[in-house]
Design a binder for these strands. Structure first.
Ligand SMILES: NC(=O)c1ccc[n+]([C@@H]2O[C@H](COP(=O)([O-])OP(=O)(O)OC[C@H]3O[C@@H](n4cnc5c(N)ncnc54)[C@H](O)[C@@H]3O)[C@@H](O)[C@H]2O)c1
Ligand SMILES: NC(=O)c1ccc[n+]([C@@H]2O[C@H](COP(=O)([O-])OP(=O)(O)OC[C@H]3O[C@@H](n4cnc5c(N)ncnc54)[C@H](O)[C@@H]3O)[C@@H](O)[C@H]2O)c1
Lengths: 214, 214
DNA sequence: TCGCGGTGTTTCACACTTGAAACAATATGA
DNA sequence: TCATATTGTTTCAAGTGTGAAACACCGCGA
């Protein structure tokens, strides 16, 4: 197939497949067919084959997929074989929780620096990571080779912080402030808006019956 | 219109509208047209009118919407006028950050109890909230009138914890463990999977050019 | 050598979302 | 009274995602 327009839903599913393969590899299995994978993890076998075929021919007809091989392929496709250095802006409770988040290391991301505007926090260490003054952001980004930023400041400062991040030349940003942000098209911005998720739960509780499953 | 099949995307947008209205109210404005709202917050005016019309006729032709009135209506639609009591299972770093999360209070959610399996944590207080033994989950849920649960335990325990939650009669669950969970259709389960979001950033960094914006 | 199993690929139907356009209805203000 | 502004509603086109089906192709084992 080798489509060049890959939907984000496809790459999200690749993440899922990768986890499933890790589990299977852990159990010592060597090969798996799209059908077995689908049955085992409640997925759709046609979808799996279609998704994988976007990136090349990884399977062996009549056999299925070699688990180790496919793991390596997906790891490469998702860029998980590259190391990335992360800056977290906002050394509050969320920033602290994220600094120590295992998911970062697992994904080959390393939290290299925290940034805050509060003089009491600047200079301190959180899980062995130094908190810098946000005024020095661009300088430290360059010095530390940071290429990913996480926004964990209150919503009203988020847009301004995003602009500083973009000015510093960073292209990939994850935003936890509950507000939509504006950025150019060449910036990958992912907003994780807990408030919307919460209000969606609230809506369900007020009107049980219709679920609207994810 | 009064459609009875409301998409989750619609209610998510209601959350956004509510925030915008709060901002406008804060500025002292009294009315707003769908057009002004759209221009100001980079939305689509037709969409706004359509979304609102799903739930009734809130606007005044020739005028627009009365901000205070519309705020109350959306608050009611989203069920934000009802109080909810939340249990967080997993009193780790994420659980602690969430316990003190302002977004809960703002949404009329109150963290009533934490649960953990670690004897060192059981009995302690985190932001004035007591940590209970997860063994007593059902009992405390009943006693405290808890109706919402948050899963903040490692992924391998998440499914088991979910089953205890469902057994205790809770219908609304937010899951932060990076794994898809299975539940009956009458349970509202929202999974916030940071790993997938991270891997999506990683994919972008490995292949700049195509953005796949949220 | 041949059949079975499973991939790679195409095709189709269906559902959902969006955005635009059109228009009747209606409140406000000149 | 009448023009204007704006909602509520319908309709349509386009894009996208999903799931099923069909089938050629190919590797493995009997
Ligand atoms: N706590 C949570 O569990 C949680 C969960 C999801 C989302 N969030 C969101 O994450 C953000 C942070 O939440 P929190 O609970 O950690 O808040 P917090 O108040 O604990 O931390 C915010 C930090 O940002 C710093 N800050 C403020 N303005 C800044 C600026 N201009 N530059 C750099 N640093 C600045 C503050 O000094 C503070 O240390 C909020 O937008 C919140 O809505 C929090
Ligand atoms: N730390 C973060 O910023 C972050 C962000 C997103 C998602 N997550 C996810 O949230 C979960 C928790 O992350 P964390 O960083 O807080 O981990 P953590 O290790 O700090 O906390 C996990 C807690 O769960 C408790 N626990 C384990 N098994 C339990 C059980 N069966 N019943 C009750 N409690 C149990 C442990 O005792 C521990 O206190 C993980 O799945 C993680 O992937 C964490």
């Amino acid at each position: 197939m080798k489509a060049d327009k890959i939907s984000e839903l496809t790459t999200n599913r690749l993440s899922i497949y990768l986890r499933c393969l890790n589990e299977l590899a852990h159990e010592g299995r060597k090969t798996v067919s799209s059908d077995r994978l689908a049955k085992r993890f409640h997925l759709n076998s046609a979808q799996i084959r279609k998704d994988l075929a976007c990136f090349g021919e990884f399977g062996v007809r009549g056999v299925g997929y070699y688990i180790e091989d496919l793991r390596e392929q997906i790891t490469r496709i998702l860029g998980l074989d590259h190391h990335h250095r992360v800056a977290i802006i906002g050394a509050g409770r969320l920033g602290a929780a994220l600094t120590d988040y295992y998911g970062f290391r697992q994904t080959n991301f390393e939290v290299a620096a925290l940034f805050d505007a509060d003089p009491d926090k600047i200079g301190s260490l959180i899980s062995d990571v130094r908190v810098f003054d946000v005024k020095d952001f661009a300088k430290i980004v360059k010095k530390e080779g940071i290429d990913v930023a996480v926004i964990a400041v209150p919503a009203e400062y988020a847009q301004k912080v995003l602009e500083e991040i973009v000015d510093a030349g960073i292209k990939a940003v994850m935003n936890f402030a509950p507000t939509p942000l504006l950025a150019d098209d060449d910036i990958k911005l992912k907003t994780i808006d807990l408030t919307i998720s919460l209000e969606s739960l609230s809506y369900f509780l007020a009107r049980p019956g219709k679920n609207g499953r994810e």
